[in-house]
Design a protein around this nucleic acid. Structure first.
Lengths: 143, 143
DNA sequence: CTTGAACCTACAGCCACTGTAGAGATTAAG
DNA sequence: CTTAATCTCTACAGTGGCTGTAGGTTCAAG
């Protein structure tokens, strides 16, 4: 009931600005204020922000998190929705891992073949210049 | 010498706007224009844009690509710089793969344990609400 | 010569924050 | 009680890497 925004930030592992940003998006509740206008939070807010940060660390988007928060706010609802969000996300993660692995192979080949002398013979530059030298076809845009 | 921006886009796998964006950033040269003011490119531009798109597909940042382009523009230079960019990137990729793998494990556990009935028993929500249930400590922010 | 596709500029929007400026609030020490 | 240090406030701009839109112009085929 008496937690400042800075303390909340530390306890849940977020930045102060991020909390205000979440409030703006409606992910965090509009906080009570002191007479001086500063936000004060309770333990519930710590839990909610931790939930959000944990989900973000797992790579869920804020929109996915919004849905997950709605579901956890209504504990009697069917959890099929939460499950399918998690499953879809798992699939996306698997795809990303596959892309990154093929990327790792290509980068490893690039680096191993660089003879360390002049750019004209540099495998790194050469590979980038000529896509045909690249065996892995799996990579779309990997972020 | 007579390639329109749309043709260039198709041939190198980019969008028209992206080419103009690259020109703005100085990654693509300022193109010659027709009397009517439209950009015309040559084969050299196709190569350069392909280089950029390939490097982007491999996850290099535009700033890294700027350096790689400078290096390939001056083929007599020492290629140590290109090599170290590629090595650093490879390390980053390995780290990302490790994080995603621990994430995959956590998501898999979440999904496997969901009993499909009500949110109160839902492993997905529960895991997100309680970071202590989470075994993988490796995940920072994964994008 | 007409038509329709492609092109032009300029700017706003996306995501998920992060950083800044300048002002006011709170708190601990003296 | 005063002062100083730290926090917090709002509002807005910037990040990266594009993508989309509006409103107009140019080009190439028929």
């Amino acid at each position: 009931m008496n937690i400042s925004i800075g303390t909340l930030a530390k306890r849940a592992g977020a930045k102060v600005q991020t909390i205000r940003y979440y409030e703006q998006l409606g992910l965090m509740p509009v906080a009570d204020r002191t007479t001086g206008g500063q936000r004060r939070y309770d333990e519930e807010a710590v839990k909610r922000l931790s939930f959000i940060r944990h989900a973000r660390a797992l790579g869920f988007s804020l929109e996915q998190i919004r849905t997950l928060l709605d579901l956890s706010d209504h504990p009697l609802a069917d959890c099929t929705a939460a499950d399918s969000i998690a499953r879809a996300h798992l699939e996306a993660v698997k795809t990303k891992i596959a892309a990154l692995n093929s990327l790792k192979r290509e980068l490893t080949r690039m680096v191993e073949c660089c003879d360390g002398t002049i750019t004209a013979h540099c495998r790194v530059i050469e590979t980038l210049a000529n896509h045909d030298l690249c065996t892995s076809s799996a990579h779309g845009t990997v972020q």
